[in-house]
């Protein structure tokens, strides 16, 4: 998702000013000139300066031209057509999904759903997807739960180990 330098620059300037303002509200340390406010205020000011320069197009000549390749991807991106760029945001959405449902459904089922959706979205065939969905969750569970003792949630389905 390509945005113009003006948009990203102004966003950074806004973020910088918020950091500066937020930093200035922090309480000082008694008897000390420099407190927790100094660093975020310096960073905020720097971000405002950089943001304005980026928005003004300064430094653009140093950048290499990037190729756009959004519309040739298989799977979900192809399916979405002109909105194909939205497909890029599926992985973080699936991570949030993991956080929300892993405790209720358990690791195995949640992992299977994530694998199913992401594999199909990347254009995997059904046999390939089913193979991944059936084999990968128990294998990852074995390594992390059994060998590394990570407390993965059981939920609706448990493994014999």
């Amino acid at each position: 998702m390509h945005l113009s330098d003006r948009v990203t620059g102004l966003f950074l300037a806004l973020l910088g000013s918020l950091a500066f303002w937020g930093g200035s509200l922090l309480p000082a340390v008694p008897g000390q000139d420099v407190g927790p406010a100094a660093f975020p205020m310096v960073i905020g000011a720097g971000l405002v300066l950089c943001g304005i320069m980026i928005a003004a197009g300064i430094g653009h000549s140093f950048e290499a031209a990037e190729s756009e390749e959004d519309d040739q991807a298989p799977g979900l991106a192809q399916h979405l057509g002109r909105m194909g760029w939205l497909a890029a945001f599926l992985p973080p959405v699936l991570l949030i999904f993991y956080v929300l449902v892993a405790n209720a459904l358990g690791f195995l089922l949640t992992a299977a759903i994530i694998l199913l959706i992401s594999a199909r979205a990347l254009g995997a065939t059904w046999p390939m997807t089913i193979g991944t969905v059936l084999l990968a969750p128990p294998f990852v569970h074995l390594i992390f739960f059994r060998l590394l003792r990570v407390p993965l949630p059981d939920g609706l389905l448990t493994m014999p180990w």
């Binding site: 991570l95 690791f107 390939m128 990968a136 969750p137 992390f144 993965l152």
Partner: peptide
């Protein structure tokens, strides 16, 4: 890629949790 990337996504979730 359609198999490797979903697996890595799963490892990202489990690894970060760990």
């Amino acid at each position: 890629r359609a198999v490797a990337m979903p697996l890595i996504l799963l490892l990202c979730a489990v690894g970060a949790f760990a």
